[in-house]
Design a protein around this nucleic acid. Structure first.
Lengths: 334, 334
DNA sequence: CCAATCTGCGGTAACGTTCCCTCAAAGCTC
DNA sequence: GAGCTTTGAGGGAACGTTACCGCAGATTGG
């Protein structure tokens, strides 16, 4: 059906080997024959079949990406941008799967990617996933990099952000502003390392200043739409009539949800309650009260992860944890 | 290196063919041998190599997706969700590329996907792209489906939304509310069919009611961040001191940008100016003034596109344009 | 000037599957 | 029980590449 190097070879009157040499810019070929071959290839509308190359050379030139999903916020979308930019530049394709933070889906996607022989993976893993899958990947020598989240049991490269420090800075800032009752808001969510770390940073600042770390609004179930869950958790929390003057939310989406609940309860931000988010979603600037937040270098995380992974694919036996810094961005809610 | 069916065959004392039959649930094999083979496969930690299968059977079980990008809004992210859900269920992988609405990038991605022998593609094409690439796909018998956007020159299946009707409904609603000076806001953006259609719907409603279709804020250049461009276009527009009482924005992101500019200019929404967006991004509900908009069934678009594409891959020679309906969602800005 | 190296190219075996053909043995029909 | 179909299995080609080996002829060096 499709035209192959064999067809070109016949047309140009040379052997397959020579055609391959011409197409792949290899040495040991006369410039003139090379030119002639490339021309006939173009004329015959030849398309390289990378499947065959992959099979032979044991390199698919595809990396797999597993994310919880793209819809809850721009967070992973921006990380993905960074990954894609680096990969496309290096001629890698990107095969993607959303886990929806569902361990079974994640396991299924790992298998799908492995069967398609991706050269490596970038993963934001879900806590609770069967770590045997990751151990298998290691045994099968398929490099992978964790991004944003990670599994403590699995030793591999990690690209993350200094969550503890970010939350510490934000909390300290609130304390300096005179707040005594600061609530950490985690919203209904599945467990993950980032949340834990952010909570630790918050707690550290609170304890350093001799304050009480106030009750956090805790997950009762696992929810996709974080804005909605933040909204509902805050509504519930307000009914309890607890005294507080500031909130540090674990991410922007939850903060936006909380903001809506506070607004509907006629609580003035920041006069009555200060609010700080996390991640610095682009949308924050467009809110009526632009949200104070902790900025996370999302694009860079993705870019660096891809860089690291492809370096590993190329044989560099690195094993490191890259921790990127955060910045407190003060806007109008604090 | 990795264990192959040959290894299993040796271990189980059968031939490669028999192993293949066992693994693929094919007939003409004894239940007992099948069971034995499956067990040894599991024991040996066998991983199917789909690359080899693809090469042999000429089916990669991968579909390619080309979108402008994921970051400007949730629009494509939600479409992608629909695509992925359908594809994963049908055992297809999803290879993705962002064009950033850059024709050269789009052409590069088409080639990348074609070389990886995807079985089909779902594309939101960029106007101005060299249509030869698409003609080649057709000549090479690689099915593809346009989604959201399309190229009039290329005859293929299209999944879209009734943009004209949506804009018509929104404009009519504004007219019924008594608005006489309604501005259509397209924001700085590259040309695309959806925008044209939405503008036509707007114009039709205006003309039907004997009004003047007021100047639209026009693109001066091509911009990634639509919120930002909407914001800046509106700031510029306000300086011109033109009389208007309502705006129909071509999408929610631009509307959100415009909203910010109006707010900063102390113009009350909806009292002084009514504002309607398009698409119904989830974020709208969380704005201080939840935005009136035209709801687009994004997830369904993606799901249907995948369904259609895979049906074509399986040999059904369909050629249709599916037009999904929109709904006007009235909130607090109109 | 003869051995050693280099250049340009061809032939063929992989890579891991599936598909097609063959073939013996068993089961069926009348 | 002779002819037919069905079942279970093996052998090898093929998918489109690349890797490796070989081999003339040209070039180099002491």
């Amino acid at each position: 059906m499709a035209v192959t190097i064999k067809d070109i070879a016949k047309e140009a009157g040379v052997s397959k080997s020579t055609v391959s040499r011409a197409l792949n810019n290899k040495p040991r070929i006369d410039e003139k024959t090379k030119k002639r071959i490339l021309e006939t290839a173009k004329k015959m509308n030849y398309r390289h079949n990378k499947l065959a190359t992959s099979l032979r050379s044991n390199k698919s030139m595809v990396v797999g990406v597993i994310f919880p999903g793209f819809t809850t916020s721009h967070f992973y979308a921006e990380i993905f941008n960074g990954i894609e930019d680096y990969c496309v530049n290096e001629e890698y394709g990107v095969l993607i799967g959303s886990s929806d933070s569902d361990t079974e889906k994640e396991e299924k996607i790992i298998q799908l990617l492995e069967e398609r022989k991706v050269d490596g993976m970038i993963i934001a893993p879900t806590i609770g996933v069967n770590i045997d899958y990751y151990k298998h990947l290691q045994k099968d020598n398929i490099p992978f990099v964790f991004i944003d989240k990670y599994l403590p049991e699995i030793k591999t490269d990690i690209i993350k952000v200094n969550n503890t420090d970010g939350a510490y800075k934000a909390t300290n800032y609130l304390i300096e502003k005179g707040h005594k009752k600061i609530v950490f808001m985690s919203g209904p969510e599945y467990p993950c390392m980032s949340i834990k770390e952010r909570y630790q940073g918050y707690k550290k600042a609170i304890l350093n200043n001799g304050l009480e770390f106030s009750k956090l609004i805790k997950a009762e179930k696992y929810v996709f739409n974080q804005r909605k869950s933040g909204y509902e958790a805050m509504k519930k929390f307000l009914k309890k009539d607890i005294n507080f003057s500031a909130i540090l939310a674990v991410n922007d989406s939850i903060a936006i949800g909380a903001m809506r609940a506070l607004r509907e309860a006629n609580i003035k931000i920041p006069d009555e309650v200060a609010l700080i988010g996390f991640n610095d979603d682009d949308i924050l600037k467009y809110l009526q009260k632009p949200l104070t937040t902790v900025k996370v270098p999302k694009y860079q995380m993705g870019f660096k992860a891809a860089e690291l992974l492809i370096s590993k694919i190329k044989g560099n036996d690195i094993n490191e944890t890259i921790v990127l810094d955060t910045d407190l961005v003060v806007r109008n809610t604090s």
